[in-house]
């Protein structure tokens, strides 16, 4: 009986295990290996030790991308969480018509970031785009080095707010009405209720969203590719974009892999730190 059950267990997990081993674990090891080589797409494959890491640090490309990604994260995550929360508090009031809005605001989330990036590129065109035409101004949203990253972050926020509000709506739905009833009897106004009750009670949801959104924003690629392609002058060159350009535009697979390895380590650290913090402070039921 028992060996048969064991065999069955192994058989059931076999396909997934093969998939994970071949297409996740092996590639990560391979990336680590390639990062020690001067590996040109078209020819040379020389072992160079830590040279790729050294040159990435020396020429500033890596630091620039880390900075760009960090700024992008700091611009987009807190704002989209705040706006998502505000939106959710209004949606859960369930006034007539809000069901339609609830569906509308999630639409951007199901659309391909690449396609949305292309649409926004059109809207942001300096002379012919809808935004400048509407406002009667001439701002170079995507080619001005100081505006490009905020513009990209804006599109990311625009895409995510509705999706984020879904989680807050679910979180708000779990807060018993009786608590609010008591607060109202005590004479608390809507802002006091939000500040002293809703936000603290939503902390599990907020933490969960903060982690997933930070991790996601460290991997953003498609939207940046369509909007700016990493320019102007590397001002929107997020880490994933740097990997792509190093690998497939400059043919430096070794340097690209080194960036990828660093990104992976960084995400491991972020996740572990956040997870520690998260599990020590709150208990959160995933289901």
């Amino acid at each position: 009986m028992r060996p048969r059950r064991s065999l069955l267990g192994w058989m059931l997990v076999a396909p997934a295990t093969i998939g994970v081993a071949c297409f996740l674990i092996l590639p990560v090891l391979l990336a680590l290996g390639v990062s020690f080589f001067d590996w040109d797409l078209l020819g040379t494959r020389d072992f160079v030790g830590l040279e790729n890491y050294r040159s990435l640090l020396a020429d500033g490309a890596l630091l620039n991308s880390l900075l760009v990604t960090a700024v992008f994260t700091l611009l987009s995550v807190p704002l989209s969480l705040a706006l998502g929360l505000i939106l959710a508090t209004q949606l859960v009031r369930a006034l007539p018509g809000s069901a339609v809005v609830r569906v509308i605001v999630v639409i951007p989330w199901v659309c391909a970031p690449l396609a949305l990036g292309v649409v926004w590129t059109w809207i942001f065109q300096p002379s012919t785009g809808a935004l400048n035409t509407l406002l009667g101004i001439r701002v170079e949203w995507l080619t001005d080095p100081t505006l490009a990253l905020p513009a990209v972050a804006f599109v990311a926020i625009w895409q995510n707010v509705g999706y984020i509000s879904l989680f807050f709506q679910a979180g708000l739905g779990r807060i018993p009405d009786s608590i609010y009833e008591a607060a109202r009897l005590d004479g608390a106004g809507p802002f006091q209720t939000l500040r002293h009750m809703t936000i603290p009670l939503l902390r599990p949801t907020t933490f969960f969203l903060a982690i997933t959104q930070v991790v996601a924003s460290f991997q953003v690629f498609d939207m940046v590719y369509a909007l700016t392609g990493g320019g102007p002058r590397h001002r929107t060159e997020v880490i994933a974009s740097l990997v792509y350009h190093e690998a497939f535009q400059n043919s430096h697979l070794g340097r690209a892999s080194a960036v990828a390895v660093i990104l992976f380590l960084l995400l491991v650290v972020i996740t572990v730190v956040q997870q520690r913090w998260f599990s020590s402070r709150i208990t959160y039921d995933m289901s």
């Binding site: 064991s6 991997q219 792509y244 990828a260 491991v268």
Partner: peptide, 27 residues
Amino acid sequence: LRFPGRDLLFWVFVATLMVPQVVVVVP
């Protein structure tokens, strides 16, 4: 189901959740 190595294997699966796509695209 109970089978030898189950918990270790599951732990490995969970760990791979942290692998971003851009890391594996070159290899």
